[in-house]
C-alpha cells in the first residue's frame, strides 16, 4: 500500500477543497462574465529564504537595501515619532568580534523563523506564518498589544506610533498595529525578488527557495559555511548569514 506522506496529503486535500469551493461558489455567487483568475494558494513545498554574505556585502550595499525597503513600503518618514519610535524594518548593524576585533556589517530584518516566537505569543493569530515560510502581521486582527515585539529575539518589529496617510497600495500600514519586513511578499507572489535583494547588484544577497535543490540559495548553502543569528534559540530562520 502506498504510504500517504504529508505533501501528498496536502495536495489531495487542497485539490478537493478547491473543487468543492468552485462548485459551491457556482451555487451561491454566480461568477463574473470575464473573470480574472485568482492565483493558487501558496504551499509548504517552498520555503523562501535569504542568504547574506557579509564578506561581499559592502556598507553602501546595506544602505541601498535599507533605502530600497523604505521606498518599497513607505516607512521611515513618520513625522511625529522620535528616536526608537521610528519604524525600522531593516537595520544596518556593525558588529565587532570581542576576541579578534574583526568587524562585520550586515542587514538585520525579520528572520522569518520556522518556529517564530511572535506567532507563538500573539493572542489573536495576527502574527502568522504562511505555508511558504514568510512571517507576516495580519493587521486586520492586530490589537496592538505588542507582545510579539517583546518576544522577537531580533528587534525586527515596529509599532506604528502615529496616524499615517498616503500608504503604498500594496503595503497597508496604520496607527496602533505592529509591522515588520514582509520579505516583499507582494513581489514574491508575482515571481519577483524582494526589493532589498534587487537593490544589491553583486551576489552578496541571494533570495530563493531553500527547499529547491536547483535554486542558487540551496546550492550555495550546501557549499559555504553559514550561520543563523541566535542559532541557540533553535528557531530555524529563513534568513541566513555567511562570514560572521
Amino acid at each position: 500500500m502506498k504510504e500517504l506522506n504529508r505533501r501528498d496529503f496536502i495536495k489531495t486535500t487542497t485539490a478537493t477543497t478547491a473543487g468543492v469551493a468552485t462548485i459551491a461558489s457556482g451555487i451561491t455567487l454566480t461568477t463574473y462574465a470575464a473573470l480574472p483568475k485568482e492565483s493558487n494558494p501558496v504551499t509548504n513545498e517552498k520555503r523562501w529564504g535569504m542568504l547574506i554574505d557579509t564578506n561581499k556585502l559592502t556598507e553602501s550595499n546595506i544602505d541601498d537595501m535599507v533605502n530600497a525597503c523604505q521606498e518599497e513600503h513607505g516607512w521611515g518618514n513618520e513625522t511625529h515619532s522620535t528616536g526608537d519610535q521610528q519604524a525600522g524594518w531593516i537595520k544596518k548593524i556593525k558588529v565587532k568580534d570581542k576576541a579578534t576585533e574583526r568587524i562585520s556589517n550586515l542587514a538585520l530584518m525579520c528572520q522569518h523563523c520556522e518556529e517564530p516566537p511572535c506567532v507563538d505569543v500573539c493572542p489573536t493569530n495576527a502574527s502568522m506564518k504562511r505555508e511558504d515560510g514568510i512571517v507576516l502581521v495580519d493587521k486586520h486582527l492586530c490589537i496592538g498589544c505588542r507582545y510579539c515585539m517583546m518576544a522577537c529575539p531580533y528587534d525586527a518589529r515596529s509599532f506604528v506610533h502615529e496616524s499615517l496617510t498616503n500608504q503604498k497600495t500594496h503595503m497597508p500600514r496604520g496607527k496602533g498595529t505592529v509591522e515588520a519586513c514582509t520579505m516583499c511578499v507582494h513581489k514574491v507572489d508575482k515571481g519577483e525578488a524582494p526589493a532589498c535583494v534587487a537593490s544589491v547588484s553583486s551576489d552578496a544577497v541571494i533570495f530563493g527557495d531553500l527547499y529547491d535543490p536547483t535554486s542558487k540559495i540551496n546550492q550555495t548553502l550546501k557549499k559555504v559555511q553559514s550561520t543563523q543569528i541566535r542559532a541557540d534559540l533553535n528557531l530555524n530562520t529563513g534568513v541566513r548569514y555567511s562570514g560572521i
Binding site: T124, A126, I143, C145
Partner: peptide, 20 residues
Amino acid sequence: LGRPDRLIVAMTEYNFNSIF
C-alpha cells in the same frame, strides 16, 4: 492597546499557544 476598539477580536480569535 494600539487598537482598543478591536477588543472584540481578542475574544473571538484565540491562539491557544499564546500565554496572553
